[in-house]
């Protein structure tokens, strides 16, 4: 595969909830949204609740199929892929960070981080090694064997970031990663995310505009439509 300078591209993407159901009323989450994210770029997807940020991330992550438009991730048109192929693409090339961390409560921090490697058939020893390495990078080398319930919110989110990166994905999608954290902790978590993501493409959906200082560019969504795009400095 030829490396593409555009990691993520959406073209006239429209998505409505309720389509195809017996309920006649539909809600338009995204309407004719088009944007591109370059490889290695850190982009903030900003907007109030219900603006369509999460929907956009879910579509880019292959969790949702848009009603219209095309979505290109690393040169592959997601809308042309089956559900199984989208799952495989997620396994190999995309990392997810969620607002509510979604760590498995009975697994240690290290086992939570190692989880995505199971599906790739990585040996347990290698899984543990890579998980430990990632936890060290996010500053949790002394918390590896702790259960999620024994960690603070910020620490749990750092574990979630490590889990998103353990399979070495090219694209990281973070959906409201600071939503459950106080402002200070949230800012530190975002800095860490961008730092450990290194040269990866990162899309961060958030309504916390102060946290956007870590991004290269901001895409603003309102009522499912793209309103404004530009450098974060332009927003000031």
């Amino acid at each position: 595969m030829e490396p593409s300078s555009v990691a993520v591209g959406c073209e006239r993407v429209t998505h409505e909830y309720g389509t195809g159901s017996t309920v006649s009323r539909t809600v338009t989450a995204l309407r004719d949204v088009s944007f591109e994210v370059a490889t290695g770029e850190v982009v903030g997807l900003v907007g109030p609740s219900g603006s369509g940020k999460s929907t956009a991330l879910h579509i880019i992550g292959g969790l949702l199929e848009p009603n219209n438009g095309t979505v290109d991730v690393l040169g592959t048109d997601l809308t042309a892929l089956s559900g199984a192929k989208r799952t495989r693409l997620r396994r190999d090339h995309i990392g997810f960070v969620f607002q509510q961390f979604h760590l498995l409560p009975a697994l240690s921090a290290r086992d939570n981080v190692a989880l995505p490697l199971i599906e790739r058939g990585v040996s347990r020893r290698e899984r543990q090694r890579r998980a430990a390495e990632l936890l060290e990078q996010v500053g949790l080398d002394d918390r590896m064997d702790h259960l999620p319930s024994e960690l603070s919110g910020g620490e749990q989110q750092r574990v979630a970031i490590a889990r998103a990166l353990v399979a070495d994905p090219e694209v990281v999608l973070a959906d409201e990663p600071t939503g459950e954290l106080d402002t200070g902790t949230g800012a530190r978590v975002l800095e860490l995310l961008v730092d450990v993501a290194d040269e990866r493409t990162v899309l961060i959906a958030t309504h916390d505009e102060r946290a956007m200082a870590v991004t290269d560019r901001v895409l603003r969504l309102l009522d499912g439509e793209m309103r404004q795009a530009g450098q974060f400095s332009d927003e000031q």
Binding site: G9, G75, T76, H93, I118, E119, G121, V122, S123, R124
Partner: peptide
Amino acid sequence: MSGDLPERNRDGPRGRRIRRWIGLFRV
């Protein structure tokens, strides 16, 4: 802009599949 991405380990050795199933069993 569309094409097929390489799927890492999709057709990996048998050992990888066994390790995957052992891992799933542990989960």
